[in-house]
Amino acid sequence: MGHILVFAEQRDGKLKRVALEALGAARQLAADAQVLAILIGEHTAALTQTLTARGADKVYLIDDAGFSHYSSEGYGRAVADIAKKEEATLILMGATALGKDLGPKVAAKLGGPFAGDCIALETDSEGKITATRPMYGGKIISTVKCRTATYQVATLRPNVFPVNDPDDTKESLVENIAPLPDLSSVKAVIKEVLASANTKVELTEADIIVSGGRGLKAPENFSIIEALADALGAAVGASRAAVDAGWKPHSYQVGLTGKTVSPSLYIACGVSGAIQHQAGMSSSKYIVAINKDPNAPIFKIANYGIVGDLFEIVPLLTEAVKKIKNE
């Protein structure tokens, strides 16, 4: 296996967890080869130490005001240039909003194979990757095989790959990218980023999600879901029925036409578990269902199910969780 290049996504000076997961995946695949990281943004230098500790042998850095915002062209060129310079066989990044744009962009520039939203990666003796990825909205799991061992690009589904234990003794090796890629040809420019009102943990990145459905009966009742989420440090999700009713914006929707999530723990409250909902959450590690209908399909996929009234169960659970956290 040749060198692996990990694009280490950060936002507002904070590394995305999936960037560390990508380092973990890279380290596993690399064997003797080098794991390189590329970090782009402004005020990013402080993060290089973390990347080293979590598995990067070398960090390429852009710390520049011109790169404070993402641009497909600017970032794409930077990553492709380093990949070429290092003859990287594999380029990894998270399947985030940014990664889903940057991954194909880099693959287009390099002409290499691209596999999106991967949940497992393997390499053969020649360094060619076989990727496992969901298709058809999760109704099918496919394996795809790269036919060339050069410039293979993969984006990784968050929360799937393990993060390496930090090794703080490792000497960090950082190289500033110079000259910087020319941004004058960038024709799509971010003018503004509006933070959404929901400042809580982002759904697709959350380790725990508490979801509410039509069983909540009214928008104000989402407060009991939010209380449980707060106690757990979790993100809040919603079924399409709850979104269509206007109780939560579309950005909360989990499922086929909403977000695909795979947290460690997914707690579905008053959600029947329609196949379209399952499409977005059935790869969660643990699923808990709270529903008053014992025949609700959600119980068929839940590890733990409580048949009962969510208005009674959820507050009790919230209290129990708070008690543990205070211990």
């Binding site: 194979p113 109704k139 099918i140 799991i141 790269c146 068929k300 996929i301 733990y304």
Partner: peptide
């Protein structure tokens, strides 16, 4: 440069406790 190798149904989750 990339080909579909194998399709399979997603691992079935079974009802737990």
């Amino acid at each position: 440069v990339i080909t579909l190798d194998q399709l399979s149904p997603p691992p079935t989750r079974t009802a737990g406790t």
